[in-house]
Nucleic acid binder design. Structure first.
Lengths: 228, 228
DNA sequence: TTTTAAAATTAGTCATACAACTTTGTATTG
DNA sequence: CAATACAAAGTTGTATGACTAATTTTAAAA
């Protein structure tokens, strides 16, 4: 029987996680004590504490701002790599795989959103759809807002796993697209958004699960097609 | 214009990632140089290198073994937490959400596996199905093998995203189940595996996508039902 | 050949010092 | 009074050195 060894850095990472998610001692957006104080409080060296913080930052739980402090993430997950996925060689294949993945996940998410979204969430989704339309009409970039649109739908599913994973999926897809094709596919992307975002938003608004699933499916299929 | 600051730890983490995934200087399973040598080679302090290693370990790219060395992961992802999902309060709800997520992803994965698996993969899947059957009949635990069974199917989809994410999904589900219910649900779990694993394996073997999707769907639905 | 013990290898931890950046407060200037 | 410039405090970043503890390897002993 081998007694499992757990490094202090990992132990401390777990304790900080517990303080955040269980004890709610630190809430999203709030600032942790500085490294000197926190390491003293936890009874470990600053080096070990820093390793723990790096672990949690890598997981998207903490955000480190040099010179000002370390903060609990608002979980607007910016993580665009897990398991080294983004390093896969064949970028074109990678984009295809990401779209295949989204094609499985997002239409069902749209359906769940149509079934479960509350009033505020419906409103936000519609707002963002319009906001993106405005941005496109004035010729501005809307990648960020597009990601948020999909993230809002994920949140409206009321499924925590979907809600928490979707942002980094969208982020990873964006990254994969950018690294795979130097060419901007803006025009086609504009059409796609203008056509399907309002439709998706409407279906969700009117609680039409079938419609939302279908619209999202077409939206993603179109996105995939436009990449060729 | 704010010049973005990137810590050495992050820079080094990226460089090591590149050495692994781009240069293929270190392949899965191989051992990195020890911390003293590697830090010297990269021209940074050992402390900074260690932080970089912790980042990559947290992402599942490296595996640290005290006293023996640091290794490139075989990507049999053992990660059972991303974004602090496992810390969500309502464990029962969390398990439900994980199953909802699997119910979206895995039936389609089974279909893709049936369509894309090569001969070796089919063989492995069938082998594992039998292996699990044997384990159950001799009353031994099979959690690990169950996870591998699902991971093998994910691999057979030939979709890198599914392949790389599935192991930690299975791992997270296991963890969520364990923390939510103290009671062992072994008997029901045994029946479920004995009934559906061979069916899924057969459908994949005979390239029946519809059958594989359906069998997997029932398998997961049954798993969800057995938890109540 | 097997067992045992010592040595080498390697990651883990701590303590300290200083550097670089951000924020805040204060004084100077127009 | 407002705006700017500068100084000070607060905070994370980096480097170094020393020591601890787990593991593997080697060599000696049985």
């Amino acid at each position: 029987m081998k007694g499992e060894f757990i490094p202090v850095s990992q132990t401390i990472a777990n304790r900080i996680s517990d303080m955040i998610f269980l004890d709610k001692k630190y809430i999203p957006g709030s600032k942790l004590p500085n490294e000197y104080d926190l390491s003293a409080e936890l009874g470990v060296s600053r080096a070990s504490l820093r390793e723990a913080i790096k672990i949690l930052a890598a997981k998207g739980i903490l955000i480190i701002k040099r010179g000002s402090g370390t903060f609990v993430s608002d979980s607007t997950g910016e993580n665009d790599d897990i398991y080294g996925i983004k390093y896969l060689e064949d970028k074109k294949k990678l984009v295809k795989h990401w779209f295949e993945f989204r094609l499985i996940l997002e239409p069902k998410s749209a359906r769940l959103a149509a079934e479960n979204a509350d009033g505020k969430q419906v409103e936000k989704i519609c707002d963002f759809s319009e906001k993106i339309t405005q941005l496109i009409k004035s010729g501005e970039p809307f990648t960020k807002e597009d990601q948020q649109f999909h993230a809002l739908i994920a949140e409206a599913t009321k499924n925590d796993v979907i809600k928490l994973t979707m942002p980094s999926i969208e982020s990873a897809v964006s990254d994969a697209i950018q690294t795979s094709s130097k060419v901007g596919h803006t025009e086609k992307s504009n059409e796609n958004a203008l056509l399907y975002h309002p439709a998706i938003a409407r279906f969700i608004k009117y609680r039409d699960g079938d419609g939302a699933e279908m619209a999202m499916r077409f939206h993603i299929l179109r996105g995939l097609k436009d990449l060729e």
